[in-house]
Every structure is written in C-alpha cells, then in structure tokens.
Amino acid sequence: MVFTLSFFIIRAAPGGPFDEARDPPAEVKKAIEARYNLDAPLWSQYLDQLQGWLLLDPGPSLRQPDHDVASILGAGLPISIVLGTLALVLGTTIGILLGLLAALRSGSWIDQLVVAFASIGISLPLYVIAGMLVLAFSFGLGWVPPAGWETPRSLILPVTCLALAPAAQAARLIRSGLIEMKTQEFARTARAKGRGSFDVLLRHCLRPAMIPLVSALGPTAAALLTGSLVIEQIFAIPGVGMHFIQGALNRDYPLVLGAVLLYTVLLQLLTLLTDVLLLMLDPRLREEAP
C-alpha cells in the first residue's frame, strides 16, 4: 500500500531524474530513459520496481549510478542508527530525570524551569539550536568540531541537538504523569505507610506514568533512526535522512521508494516493540488481552 502510493505520488511530480540545466538532444534523452526502463508504461515500471524490492534488488540509483540503492541506504543507515539511538537514549534518560525532579518539586522554580525547558526543546527549530551550539562549543570554546563525521567527538553536537526534542517530550509527559499519579490512592497509601515522596514517585508512580511516554516513543524513535535532514545538512552527517528529501527533489524514484519503505518498516517494528513494552508496563492490558 505504502509502496504503491509512494510510487505513483513521486511519478506524478513534474520533471524527471535526468533533467539538467542543459538538455541533451531528444534522441539521447530517450536513450537515457530507455536505459533505466523509464520509457516503459507506468504500470510496467511499477511491476518492475515492485519485483526488484521483493527480491531485495532495487537496482542502481538514477542520480548516483555508481551505486545501487541498497548500498546507498546501507551506507547511511548505520550512521543514522548510531545518532538516533544515542539521541533517543540520552534524551529520554534526561527527560525522565527532569520529569521526576519537576514532579517531586511541583510548583517550585525547578518545576517551572523544567516546564520552560520542555517548551523550548519542543518549539525551538533544530537549525537555531544547532547554530547556537556550533557557535558556543566549536568556535567559542573549541571543544568539538563544527561538522563532519571523523571521530567520536563529531557525534557530540548532532546527538545533543537531536536529543533535545525527545528530552523535552519525555520531561513533559513524565512530569504530568507523575503529578497525576501522586494524587492517586495507591500513592497516598504508600506515603501514609511512611514511604518518602521520592521513593513513592520512583517505585510506585513512575511505572504507570511511563505509559504515555512509551506510547509516544515508537514514532519518535522511527523518526530519529531514519535521520534528520536538518542535522545531516548542518553537521555534514552522511545518514539516510537526506535521501528522503534529496531523492524526491532529484526524482531518484528507486531511492525515494527505498527511503519510504525503510521508514515504514522501522515504524512498524518500533510500534510493535512499543506495544510489547506497554504490555510489560501495564498489567491491565495483559488482563484485557484474549
């Protein structure tokens, strides 16, 4: 379904992969199109592409003919996975800690600070954050390179930028979840039995408060693992995020389909994983399950 929709949407866009500022003669252009089967009827091209993907052999990229689509995505995916996983783990951990802190001191200046951080983290565009971090830590303090993919230090700025949004999201969800949970009967009972506020939050409230966060983690993780166009462009990171946009702008049909399929598969897998995690976290779901 996703494949079919993507195929016909990208083919509906005007222009083609071999359009350049200067045109070859019409006969030569026809020959180029024939070379990549683009002169065949659309349904035939669709079936060819479908067959190629089913056999995991989508063929060469139209704009980077020295490489096939699988190797292009294969080269970028590990990089996006490293960046995305680190950002997800870092962001979620920091977000949970901040949420805990805010809920523990709800109404205090700490709480307000966390709420402000969450609002900024969600609303500030990545290119603004990235620009400020480069200015401060690369050109101000000289601690990390401003771009490139050379050493583990190259990871620091892009991971920090990418982690900000999940951290803000986690802080917001955990804070509101914990504030709601700590007024529940079970929390009051625990406190009445002499448990400290932090202990109650950590041992009794955190688990149910995690449920909305875990539900949101699936799509967040899928987006992070498939790269970010903005971050890849600013920090010259060779991940897969750029292919979603560049592939479409270049009318590199097989590459666009590959990128979309990759995202779809990851999204499905991560949604499945999220559902499993939710089952582990929420006993009510297990009881409801047939």
Binding site: V134, S138, F139, P145, P146, A147, G148, Q233, I234, F235, A236, P238, M242, Q246
Partner: peptide, 18 residues
C-alpha cells in the same frame, strides 16, 4: 573531497581548519 550540501557547513569547516 568533503561532501557538504550547505554553504554554511562548508564555511564552518574552513573556519575550523578542517
């Protein structure tokens, strides 16, 4: 030969001596 889509990034790499 470094690949960098953005002119800003190329400028940053140059300024940083990379």
């Amino acid at each position: 030969f470094l690949a960098a889509e953005s002119g800003n990034t190329m400028l940053n790499l140059f300024v940083a001596g990379m």
